[in-house]
Nucleic acid binder design. Structure first.
Length: 590
RNA sequence: GAUCACGUAGCUCAGUAGGAUAGAGCAACUGCCUUCUAAGCAGUCGGUCACAGGUUCGAAUCCUGUCGUGAUCACCA
């Protein structure tokens, strides 16, 4: 069965844009009407205005011409049309929806596969190995994972990639802290590895802050200046040099610390039910970046400064690529990782970096460097940026060293678990509580447009009413409980009877599912998974309304019951499909 | 100071390929469990789409300016 919208588009193009097909094709606005009264506005709305300017009379003429043509050509499914305020409204026959239902039952798919051999890499999470994953990571992970899952169901060859920033100043800070501020007596070994290393890191930052304050007071200089005279800061720099020189002691502690952190990360990922296809470590790729930069100097793309640091000129500003002591920086290792990926995959069609919007400039510089080096791969790179998660009015970000500015994912999860446990009416087993609270957390983060700041307020997350993950899970469980009582496989499809019996209620649900492809297109175009949660919420509302108003089981007319059961089955599959994409746990019982 | 985002109901957010009467949830207030899961459903209340111009037959949506909030501005990652 051909896609109706596509058929309408073809007719539209044939009649309205003989010239300039390609240019106009993208502007054609043909949508299923799920939001306005179908008695007045029909099933499908075609916006006549979106193409080119016409005066009112001509618009009506063209609209009616188009309407006639559509009715003639698609007579099988279209029974009338009208023209209102520059919209051509198409009214569909019930037969169309019966056909759609039949197809859903037969094929059980909601999307047409688009591609099978295109390779897309989605890099997300990208933690530093010096502290636990926090809410900023959570947002990152959920955006990345959802986008990756959508590409996956569309048939793309997807690689979910985690890049761990396991080298650099930050990890040296934890090493120094372990060496100087802790001994066997005051070390706590009974906590999760990443939290343990986090304690080391925060201890260092605290001590550094103290020292700098003292120095700047003593010599009456600014804090930025004072860093130069800081003993701790010096120790860290030396540690980094030792590490890059592969000194035994440095490497030994570094390995031990990282091991602890990864163990902790894995537990958190397991709780979130997030899996990666590959894990890259910057410690293994940064040397490629270093080499690349040294070559660039020979080719006069990068320059050596007076103090021996290496820089790149971007908008007349110096971007440092190597420190004057020869050690690498963030951007160096970023280049190295990219080179590694090119080597590993030879060719990929798209690499999406899911990274916060504070790094927009960083990626602009990166792409510019690649362009300057004639690495055309930069055209296949995209920085998917998202806004911050704020807590207590402050951004949650690594630069804030005060531990109170962080909420770690682990803490949020256990907080939510407790809340759900106390709130639910009947006593539930822990597993169900966990799945409910996980769904609630995920939904709450995905549902906000990545461009917007999430003002993290525990009261926003701790909600079980209305537009929440629980609502979706509940809707699923409700429908499931009905289907459990009947053997759906034994239900026959009575086309002619169904045609007579199908009503507005049933049709409006099917029409909503028909909008799905448009929704997916928009999500990928905008890189915005929140569109999906909003859509799923809208559908769930419709279904709950249907459920409450109509009886499904034990109705007099057995054919009607069958029709409704079949629709329930489709809805159930549809919810399942999308909850999988969003990573929201599916519960058969709540 | 420069650059980039964002500003829609008391609160949290949809809507921004210009197009039909600006939509949800929360909070407040009404109804609905003897009947497939009431973590639900139906309803009431609530808006000068920050402000001012401009483009257009038509602007929450595009452009300019102002104000407000946030991020970035390079040897942190």
């Amino acid at each position: 069965m051909k896609n109706l919208i596509k058929q309408l588009k073809d007719i539209y193009i044939k009649i309205l844009c003989n010239n300039n097909k390609k240019k106009k094709k993208n502007n054609i606005n043909i949508l299923y009407n799920n939001y306005k009264d179908n008695n007045i506005y029909g099933d499908i709305n075609i916006n006549i205005n979106s193409i080119f300017f016409l005066n009112k009379e001509n618009k009506k003429k063209i609209g009616i011409k188009l309407g006639n043509k559509i009715k003639k050509k698609l007579n099988k499914y279209v029974y009338k049309y009208n023209f209102k305020s520059n919209y051509l409204n198409i009214f569909l026959k019930k037969r169309y929806y019966i056909k759609i239902i039949k197809n859903y039952i037969k094929f059980n798919t909601f999307l047409k596969k688009q591609s099978s051999n295109k390779r897309y890499i989605i890099e997300f999470s990208s933690p530093n190995s010096n502290k636990p994953l926090h809410l900023g990571h959570l947002r990152n992970i959920l955006i990345g994972n959802t986008i990756a899952n959508i590409y996956k169901v569309l048939g793309f060859n997807i690689i979910k990639s985690q890049l761990i920033n396991d080298r650099g100043i930050h990890i040296c800070k934890s090493i120094i802290a372990l060496k100087y501020f802790f001994n066997k007596k005051n070390l706590k070994f009974n906590i999760k590895g990443d939290h343990f290393v986090g304690i080391l890191y925060f201890k260092f930052e605290k001590e550094l802050k103290k020292e700098i304050k003292l120095i700047s007071k003593k010599y009456n200089i600014k804090k930025k200046e004072a860093i130069k005279y800081s003993k701790l800061s010096n120790l860290v720099n030396k540690e980094l040099i030792n590490w890059e020189k592969k000194k035994k002691e440095s490497i030994y502690i570094w390995k031990k610390i990282n091991k602890l952190v990864y163990k902790g990360f894995n537990i958190t990922y397991k709780k979130l039910n997030i899996k990666f296809d590959e894990i890259l470590y910057e410690s293994k790729t940064y040397l490629l970046g270093k080499k690349f930069i040294l070559k660039g100097i020979e080719r006069n793309i990068f320059f050596i400064d007076k103090d021996k640091s290496v820089y790149f000129l971007y908008n007349k500003k110096k971007i440092i690529l190597l420190r004057n002591n020869g050690t690498s920086l963030y951007i160096t290792q970023e280049i190295g990782t990219l080179l590694y990926r090119i080597k590993k995959y030879k060719n990929f069609n798209l690499l999406i970096y899911v990274v916060g919007n504070e790094q927009i400039n960083h990626f602009k510089v990166l792409f510019e460097i690649l362009k300057n080096n004639k690495l055309l791969i930069y055209k296949n790179l995209y920085h998917l940026s998202y806004n911050t998660v704020n807590f207590l009015g402050k951004k949650i970000k690594s630069r804030y060293i005060n531990k109170n500015k962080y909420i770690f994912i682990d803490d949020l999860i256990s907080f939510m678990n407790n809340y759900v446990k106390n709130k639910i009416k009947k006593k539930k087993i822990d597993k169900i509580v966990e799945l409910i609270s996980l769904g609630a957390i995920k939904y709450q983060f995905i549902k906000i447009n990545p461009k917007k700041i999430i003002d993290f307020n525990i009261n926003n997350v701790l909600r079980i009413k209305g537009n929440t993950g629980i609502y979706i899970q509940y809707t699923y469980a409700r429908i499931y409980s009905i289907l459990k009582k009947k053997n759906i496989k034994k239900i026959k499809f009575y086309e002619i009877k169904f045609l007579k019996l199908i009503k507005k209620n049933e049709i409006s649900i099917i029409r909503l599912i028909l909008e799905y492809e448009t929704i997916i297109d928009r999500i990928l175009k905008k890189y915005d998974p929140s569109i999906l949660t909003n859509y799923i919420y809208f559908i769930s509302k419709k279904i709950n309304n249907f459920y409450q108003k109509n009886k499904i089981l034990n109705i007099n007319n057995i054919y009607k019951q069958n029709l409704r059961l079949i629709i329930c089955k489709i809805i159930l599959n549809f919810l399942y499909f999308n909850m999988k994409i969003l990573g929201i746990p599916i519960l058969k019982k709540i």
